[in-house]
C-alpha cells in the first residue's frame, strides 16, 4: 500500500488555557482510510489542522512518514476554497509550474474535463468540490486530509462525490484522514472509524471487509447504531456550539 504512515503521541492543543486536544494517540497505517467522528467541538478539525501543518500542537509528537521522500500532505475543506479569480484549471495547478496537462487530466478524472476554462462562479457546489478534489490530487498526496468535504452538499451530490472519491482511491491508494459528521459516510468510505470525545480518542472501530462497503448491509447497520449510540453519549458533555434544537430532539433516545 502506498501512502504515508501517521504517528501521533500524546498530542495536546490548548487555546488560552482551554484544552481542545487532550492527549491524542493515533496510528494510521500507509494506505489506510481513517474517519474521525464526534460531536462538534471535540477537536476533530483541530487535529486535522495540526496534521496539515496549519496549526501547531502545544505538546506531543506528530510524525508523517512517507519513506525516503518528504511526505506530500494536501487538505480539502468543507468550503471549496477555490480562488474566484482563477479558472478551474488555474485553481487546480495553483502553486505549480508547467503542470497544465496533468491538471487537465485530473479534471477529466473528476468529471470536469470540459470546465477547465470556466471560472468557479459558474460551477455548481458539487462541481466546485470536484475541482477542489482535483486540486488536492494533483500533488499525488501521500496523505489526504478531508475536513467535512461533502458536508455542505445535497444528499445526491454527496453520494456521487463519495463514489468518485472511493473510485479514485481504488486507482491510486493513499492514506486518508476524514473528519465527518456523517456516520454513514464514515462507514461507507473508511477502514477504521475513530470516535473523539473531549479532545481524546474514545473509540477505535475497525470495519470489516474492503471499502467501499455496500450501502444497507446488516452488519453496517448494527455498527451504525452502535456508533450513533456512543456519539449521543457525548451530547451535553462536549457539545458547545450545536443548536439547542438538535439536542432536544436527540435526548429522548438516550
Amino acid at each position: 500500500m502506498s501512502g504515508a504512515a501517521v504517528t501521533i503521541r500524546r498530542l495536546e492543543r490548548s487555546f488560552g488555557g482551554n484544552a481542545v486536544l487532550n492527549g491524542v494517540d493515533l496510528d494510521v497505517a500507509p494506505g489506510e482510510f481513517v474517519s474521525l467522528i464526534g460531536a462538534s467541538g471535540v477537536g476533530k478539525s483541530t487535529l486535522l489542522k495540526i496534521v496539515a501543518g496549519l496549526d501547531e500542537a502545544t505538546a506531543g509528537i506528530l510524525r508523517v512518514d512517507a519513506g525516503t521522500k518528504r511526505p506530500e500532505v494536501r487538505m480539502m475543506f468543507q468550503e471549496d476554497r477555490l480562488l474566484p479569480w482563477r479558472t478551474v484549471l488555474g485553481n487546480v495547478v495553483l502553486g505549480t509550474r508547467g503542470r497544465e496537462a496533468d491538471g487537465a487530466e485530473i479534471l477529466h478524472a473528476v468529471g470536469l474535463g470540459e470546465r477547465g476554462d470556466d471560472y468557479p462562479a459558474v460551477l455548481s457546489g458539487g462541481q466546485r468540490q470536484r475541482a477542489a478534489l482535483a486540486r488536492a490530487l494533483l500533488h499525488q498526496p501521500d496523505l489526504l486530509l478531508l475536513d467535512e468535504p461533502f458536508g455542505a452538499l445535497d444528499a445526491l451530490t454527496r453520494a456521487a462525490m463519495q463514489e468518485l472519491l472511493s473510485s479514485l482511491l481504488r486507482q491510486s491508494p493513499r492514506t486518508v484522514l476524514l473528519v465527518t459528521h456523517d456516520v454513514d459516510e464514515a462507514l461507507l468510505l473508511s477502514d477504521r472509524v475513530i470516535v473523539m470525545r473531549a479532545g481524546r480518542i474514545a473509540r477505535s472501530l475497525a470495519l470489516p471487509g474492503p471499502r467501499p462497503r455496500p450501502r444497507g448491509d446488516a452488519e453496517l447497520a448494527r455498527l451504525k447504531e452502535e456508533l450513533i449510540g456512543s456519539l449521543l453519549h457525548d451530547e451535553g458533555t462536549a457539545d458547545t456550539d450545536k443548536p439547542r434544537r438538535v439536542k432536544r430532539e436527540l435526548q429522548p433516545h438516550t
Binding site: 496539515a52 494536501r74 476554497r81 495553483l94 502553486g95
Partner: peptide, 20 residues
C-alpha cells in the same frame, strides 16, 4: 480561508501575495 488554503498548498510568501 483562502490564505489558509494557499498555505496548506505550500505557496511561498511571494506566491501567496501574488496569487491570493
Amino acid at each position: 480561508k483562502l490564505v489558509e488554503m494557499g498555505r496548506s498548498y505550500g505557496l511561498t510568501k511571494p506566491q501567496l501575495i501574488w496569487s491570493i
